[in-house]
Every structure is written in C-alpha cells, then in structure tokens.
Amino acid sequence: MVIPEDRQLNIVVAVKLVPDTNADKRIDPQTRRLVRSAAETVLNPFDEYAIEAGLQLKEQLADGSSVTIVTMAPESGKEVVRKALAMGADRAVMLSDPAFAGSDVWATAYVLAAGIRRIGFDLVLTGTQSTDAITGELPGALAEYLGVPGLTYAREIHVAAGRVRVKRETDTGYQTLSAPLPALASITKSAAEPRFASLKGIMAAKKKEIAVLRLADLEIAQAVGGDGAKLEVTELTASPARAAGKTVTAADGNAGARTIVAFLKERNLL
C-alpha cells in the first residue's frame, strides 16, 4: 500500500503509563506486581520523545495531519493521558478492560495493535523503552502484529512521498532507513526534547476527546491479559542495599594512594 503524497497523515503515538520513578514503590509478593495505588502514575518519560516527534511531524506537514495517543491502561489514568493532549496531541484512545490486566509485552503489543488498527494509522510512533519494565521489546512486537516495517531507535524522522525516513542510532554509528507507509518508528531520547505543556494546551486539552475502547470493541482473536502472557515472573528479589563507601583521606598518605589505585584497577578504570 502506498500512501499518496497529498493525504493527511494519521500519526498514532503509543504510550505507557508508568509509576513515577521518584515515588516510593512497593511490590506485592503474592501477585509479583507493583502496587499501583502506592505510586503516582506518570507518562513514561521515554514516550514523551515520541509524542514530541509526532507533534513536530504534524507541525512540519501542516496539512491537517493529526496525532492520536493510544495507551493500554485503566481508565483511572485518564488525567495522565490528558497531559499528552495538553502537549498538543489531537485526541486519545484508552484501551481499558479488566481483561487486559497482567499482560506481558507480547499480550500488550497484541492489544495495542488491535486498538491501533481500529483507530486507523499511517505512522505509529513509540518510545524506545519504559522506565518500569525496561524490556525495550514493545516497538518490535507491535510492528510485527501490525504487519508493518519497524524502524527502531530513530533520532530523526521525516515523511515524504508516502515514505518514512529515519536516522537510526546503533552502537557504532548511524543508519539511514526508509520504508513505505504505513510503518512504525521508535524514537530515541536524542531526538527533540519534549515540549512543556502550555497553558493554552492545558485549556484546550480539557475539551479534547479521550475515547475508551473495551475488549469487546476490538478484534481480539487470542487470549490477552495474564492468560495471554508468555512471560511469567517466577521470583522477585529487592536489589541489595548499597555497601558503605570507603573513605580515603590525605592523612592516609601513600597507603591511601595505593588503595585508590587498586580500586580503580579493579574496575578497569586505569
């Protein structure tokens, strides 16, 4: 499918709601899940880069193209989603159903794909990872389920003549990739800094639509939620407390200097 050049672009940004990294967190030992009520929920900071990229694309095209936010989250997260609207996105769709609870990456990507197909899309943008699970696997899985090219780790993104072109970050340098639309791209933190929501944006966001789609609204042909998860958390341990530091002072003289050198060598820093 080739998108004609004069067609407005339907940009869909998939975001995740995550616990605030600054908040105190507690994990329920029974369910092995995070106790959500105890932590403030925020937009996954990585996803803000994807929103910014989507908004910039929309502004560059300036042809009536739109940005839709999609997230799989309980409805209680509505006000968090509204922040994306305050940044300038046109509308949001929440995929909310108790049946989605307990989804792993695999099941989440499946549900998101069903939601995004329902919304209709030319270009899907995501962040590169979430601050809670940090698997970084969702963009690939989502592209797979949508059956579109997945251009991951984009630090620059352009759309022209029905194709998307990205500059992709790798460990050794950059690649330039291009693919026909529809497609998916994940956006890195080295793209543009996310904008602040403006007062005008906040006021406008209040009037924007946040639609809610349930399980029954989507074409779902396989198990989702905990039942559809392929990944099982078998054990959880708290990270070990940090050991007390070693203090070396001038009074330690040569012995102190040797301690510092040994410390650095041990870590291959010298």
Binding site: R82, K83, A86, F196, S198, L199, I202, M203, A205, K206
Partner: peptide
C-alpha cells in the same frame, strides 16, 4: 466553571516550568 478541571494540570506544568526553565 472549568477551573477545577484544569487547576491540577496548571499547577503541575507551572511547577515544571518554574523548576526547569
């Protein structure tokens, strides 16, 4: 009439702007 709906968002964004800019 709409003020209560936006007040939290305004406080939060203003606080971010104040701290970060």
């Amino acid at each position: 009439e709409d003020t209560p709906d936006v007040v939290d968002a305004i406080l939060e964004e203003a606080s971010t702007f104040a701290s970060e800019v």
